[in-house]
Design a protein around this nucleic acid. Structure first.
Lengths: 137, 137
DNA sequence: TATTGTTATACTCTATAACTATA
DNA sequence: TATAGTTATAGAGTATAACAATA
């Protein structure tokens, strides 16, 4: 009877194969992994500062600057100084960005579905519920 | 009603927090993350070649050499040329290695338990079962 | 002086390709 | 010549700290 493998190792391997699965899709849609994460965060709601966005996605504030530059150059996000405090940048997804993100997300979720299809329906629902609860920190 | 977040992003965040949780424990036990992964693999069964070990843990064969050097120097693994083919290195965990790994694993699993304790018992069992099934590739 | 965002630097990981030793 | 392991090189990703602009 096998002992339970370490959770981190187990999930780490799973994440690696998911990333491998999704990277080609993102490339087709001309999005980097971080770009996709940022678009997803902004699609849920706009954010008032870059630091807040960085924290929301678990990144360093210096780490997302290049990503924001690219997304802005591609017209996928807007990024304007707040008139009330010109130090901060107001961040929001554009309509183009939303479309791009949705298109990528549809393909990605379809691939994820194929993976999840291996699970019995009950386990599958519980897995998603549990993952969401645990990821909520 | 919130849409389902992307699986990869969700699990990726979860893995990050697990790693953050476990890194201090590994440091206490003087193990690197890869060192722990290697010990865990060898604790399940010895391996005949370094390339096979690398593949088993999803790493590159060049990537684990430094790790194997450290583990060997610390007396946690044995690594001898196969008399039948002196190109290959027979790898096995030592008794010291086993003890070190078990000690770290106990502490790590205890921390994981505390995290999993948030879940209803049924979801928790289903989550582990599903994660194991999906990670099995 | 404190805060937001940016740039610069160094450091760690990783991937690729040469190299050695055995076969 | 083919294979297991090793070393060397370069590239990507990341963290830290210094910097500029604004408050």
């Amino acid at each position: 009877m096998a002992e339970r493998p370490d959770l981190a190792a187990m999930l780490g391997g799973l994440v690696r194969s998911l990333v491998a699965l999704e990277t080609p899709v993102l490339e087709e849609h001309r999005l980097s992994m971080w770009g996709y994460v940022v678009l997803s965060a902004l699609d849920d709601s706009p954010v008032r500062t870059q630091a807040a966005l960085a924290q929301a996605i678990g990144a360093d504030k210096t780490r997302i600057i290049g990503t924001l530059d690219e997304l802005q150059d591609a017209g996928l996000i807007s990024r304007e100084p707040d008139p009330a405090d010109r130090r901060v940048r107001l961040l929001a997804i554009t309509e183009t960005g939303r479309e791009r993100r949705r298109a990528a997300q549809d393909r990605i979720q379809a691939k994820e579905e194929r993976l999840l299809a291996r699970l019995p329906a009950a386990d599958r629902a519980a897995f998603l519920r549990a993952a969401q609860a645990l990821a909520a920190e």
